[in-house]
Amino acid sequence: MTSVSNVDTRPHPRVAAPPTAAGFDWFLALALVACGAAVVRALFFTPADAMLGDVQKLFYVHVPAAIAGLYIGCGLLAVCSLVYLWVKDDRLDRLAESSAEVSLLCMTVVLTTGPIWGRSSWGTWWVWDARLTSTLFLWFLVLSYLVLRGAVEQPETRARLSAVMGSLAALLVPFIHLTVYLFRSQHPSPIVIRPEALTSPSLPPEMAATFGLSATAFILLFFAMLRLRYRLATATAARNAMEHG
């Protein structure tokens, strides 16, 4: 009987297709127009907060960046990393890398607009509060993920190691969400992502409408940037494949 144990029966990893010709990115343009409209509505057509003043309008960029960066971006990173470990498809590795980078950008927005808001309303730029500290910790983990990718040259080893790290890093996201319930925190409790938000909204209608528009626009922008980054990753992989035969 012939043994086939030495034959690699796994599906061959997908090779990156060569980049196509440059064209106008309608999706990115749509996302930028939506973000522009959301910002104009937030700054000029939404009332200021009675206690905090204009600084409360940072809410319309801070929270969408947190939703996109932490929940969507890190969620994608975890799912792509886990599925990569199973099916070994290079496209998942590239999508995980892209979502990690765009998530890092969104978390940077969160970690800069948050302290600006805090300086105005708390009187200090930073407190070592559980929510803030764990978000900073996740920022460092995602940064480490990207540094790790840059440090390993062998593509399959890089993809496997970073998939393990990416899936573990994203475990911090549910913990970050729960920190305001588990610890005494200066950070406000969730306003939008909470079970009773539909029955008892905590935002006035004008603010809720602006927030809805803003969240939609910045999530669109997240996916537009993710698409851009994924195309770059595909182009880089195709170039590397051509260079190395």
């Binding site: 009675a50 905090l52 600084v55 940072l58 960029v61 950008l105 927005v109 800069t112 600006i116």
Partner: peptide, 23 residues
């Protein structure tokens, strides 16, 4: 309400710079 518009402008400027620069 207190005049906190400078903080608001700083926050939006940082956001534009980060997203715009990345794109």
């Amino acid at each position: 309400p207190p005049d906190t518009s400078s903080y608001m402008i700083a926050g939006y400027a940082v956001t534009f710079a980060l997203y715009g620069g990345y794109i």
